[in-house]
Amino acid sequence: MDLDFSVALTYLPVMLKATLLTITLALVTQTLGTSIGFVFALGRTSRSRILRFVVWAYVWLFRGTPVLLHLFFVYYAAPLFGVTLDAIPAAIIAMTLSSAAYNTEILRAGIQAVHPGQVEAAEAVGMRYSRIVRHVIAPQAVRIVIPPYMSNFISHTKNTSLASVITVPELMLTSQMVYSSTYRAIEILTVAGLIYLLLTSCLTGLQLWLERRTSYEARGMSRRRRAIFLGKAPASAPREA
């Protein structure tokens, strides 16, 4: 069979429209999963054994089972308990729960990489825990977790294709519908693969930018701190904008 990509080009606007839903699904679920994961990561590092166990059990359950099962249970099993959801909300809930489990462990690693002495020093000067998290823990943890976090984000973006099994009209389901009517599976799936590759390449570029942006070795000391270090400016000099 000869390849004919003109068919794929004809349906490209339809596939690009479905790509917007793929992007939205990935961004929404990863954002929610990151927010929940950060709270759970703090729970995993808390002094409460009960809280640590509850969060550990959640992570154990959702990391140990496929995303496909989460989608099926939320969409098909929830109605048995009186909860009926449309396909898109069900996909958002299921993929957020999965994303939160992975992000919990990634963010926990970053939090625990911060030296305990810095937290103790902040407590010694009377800082509240919320300020310690914001000003001491989070800035240092972010730099550490960028590579694993972005790798997980890339995998999560590709996993949005699984939402097609519960009839979410994202890129993969739309591609299946197109090649079912045109009988040009190779051409359509090739274009779909290139679109996924473009999305993940953008995320890879974002990862490299974030790594350079947060790398101390790359950005070095600010001019104010360099002047203080060299004894050319008082420590109380006004902060640069």
Score class of each variant (00 low, 15 high):
Asp4Ala: 07
Asp4Thr: 01
Phe5Ile: 05
Phe5His: 01
Ser6Cys: 06
Ser6Asn: 14
Ser6Trp: 11
Thr10Met: 09
Tyr11Met: 04
Leu12Val: 08
Leu12Arg: 02
Val14Ile: 13
Met15Trp: 07
Leu16Tyr: 08
Lys17Tyr: 06
Ala18Gly: 00
Ala18Met: 01
Ala18Phe: 02
Leu21Ser: 08
Ile23Gln: 09
Leu25Asn: 03
Leu27Gln: 13
Val28Ser: 04
Thr29His: 09
Thr29Tyr: 06
Thr29Ala: 09
Thr31Phe: 15
Thr34Arg: 00
Ser35Lys: 10
Ser35Asn: 12
Ala41Glu: 03
Leu42Ser: 05
Arg44Cys: 05
Thr45Ala: 07
Ser46Met: 11
Ser46Gln: 13
Ser46Asn: 14
Arg47Val: 08
Ser48Lys: 06
Ser48Asn: 15
Arg49Ser: 12
Leu51Val: 11
Val54Arg: 02
Val55Ser: 04
Val55Pro: 01
Val59Leu: 05
Val59Pro: 01
Val59Arg: 00
Leu61Gly: 15
Leu61Val: 15
Phe62Trp: 08
Arg63Met: 12
Gly64Val: 11
Thr65Tyr: 10
Leu69Tyr: 15
His70Val: 05
His70Met: 07
Phe72Ala: 01
Phe73Lys: 03
Phe73Ser: 06
Tyr75Gly: 04
Tyr75Asn: 00
Ala77Lys: 15
Ala78Trp: 03
Pro79Ile: 08
Gly82Ile: 09
Gly82Ala: 14
Gly82Phe: 07
Leu85Gly: 05
Asp86Tyr: 06
Ala87Val: 13
Ala91Arg: 03
Ala91Cys: 06
Ala94His: 03
Ala94Trp: 04
Leu97Glu: 04
Ser99Thr: 14
Ser99Arg: 02
Tyr102Leu: 04
Asn103Cys: 07
Ile106Phe: 02
Gly110Glu: 06
Ile111Ser: 04
Gln112Cys: 09
His115Ala: 15
His115Glu: 15
Gly117Pro: 04
Gly117Asp: 11
Gly117Tyr: 05
Val119Asp: 00
Glu120Ser: 09
Glu120Trp: 01
Ala124Trp: 08
Val125Ser: 12
Met127His: 05
Arg128Trp: 08
Arg128Asn: 11
